[in-house]
Design a protein around this nucleic acid. Structure first.
Length: 156
DNA sequence: GCCAACGTTGGC
DNA sequence: GCCAACGTTGGC
C-alpha cells in the first residue's frame, strides 16, 4: 500500500466538504498535470491513504487523512464546457485526465502547518517540501507518514 | 527539436 | 498582489 499527499484549496474543496459528502466520499477532480495524473492513474490503489493538504490559505498545511476509494477513471469535468476544468482538447475516446474517489478517514485535532513540516529534519526529504514543487499529488514514505501522524496525535 | 512567451501554482 | 519556479504552447 502507498501513502500520498493531495493538495486542495479549502475555498474550493476542503476537508470539511469531504466529511459532509454523501458516504463521506467524493471524486478528486480537476487534476490537470501530467505527472500528478500518472501517479494517480498508474500507482494509486484502493486502500492507499493520503494526507489532505490545504493549499493557498493561511496557514497551509495537513489537516487530516483520507482513503483512496477507487481506481482511476476518466475525469468527467474535462468534457463539461461549463466546468472550470473543461479541456476541449481531450478526446472522449482517449481521455486525457483521470481522477480517483476519496473517502474521509479523519480530521486531525490540529493542523500540521507547512512551517511545522519544514521544521523537522525527519521530513527534510518530503517531495512536497522540495523547492519549486508544484505537484498537487505527491508520494509520502511510510516513515514520513508515521512521523506526521504521531505529530498530529501529540499535544503540540 | 529549440526556445521565447505565456499561463499556473502556491507560498509569502 | 507579487513573483519564483515551474509546465505548456506554438512559431520556426
Amino acid at each position: 500500500m502507498n501513502y500520498w499527499l493531495m493538495k486542495s484549496e479549502p475555498d474550493v474543496f476542503g476537508i470539511d466538504d469531504l466529511q459532509q459528502s454523501p458516504n463521506q466520499t467524493d471524486s478528486w477532480d480537476g487534476v490537470r498535470n501530467y505527472q500528478a495524473r500518472n501517479m494517480l492513474r498508474d500507482q494509486m490503489q484502493v486502500g492507499d491513504l493520503a494526507f489532505f493538504y490545504h493549499s493557498n490559505c493561511k496557514p497551509p498545511g495537513i489537516v487530516g487523512i483520507m482513503e483512496i476509494a477507487s481506481r482511476a477513471y476518466p475525469d468527467p469535468t474535462q468534457f463539461d464546457p461549463d466546468s472550470d476544468y473543461y479541456d476541449p482538447k481531450s478526446d472522449p475516446a482517449n481521455p486525457r485526465w483521470y481522477l480517483v474517489d476519496v473517502r474521509f478517514k479523519r480530521k486531525f485535532a490540529r493542523m500540521i502547518t507547512l512551517d511545522e513540516l519544514r521544521s523537522h529534519p525527519e521530513l527534510a526529504d518530503m517531495v512536497v517540501l522540495r523547492r519549486g514543487n508544484r505537484l498537487s499529488i505527491t508520494p509520502v514514505t511510510k516513515a514520513e507518514w508515521d512521523f506526521i501522524v504521531a505529530l498530529a496525535d501529540s499535544r503540540d
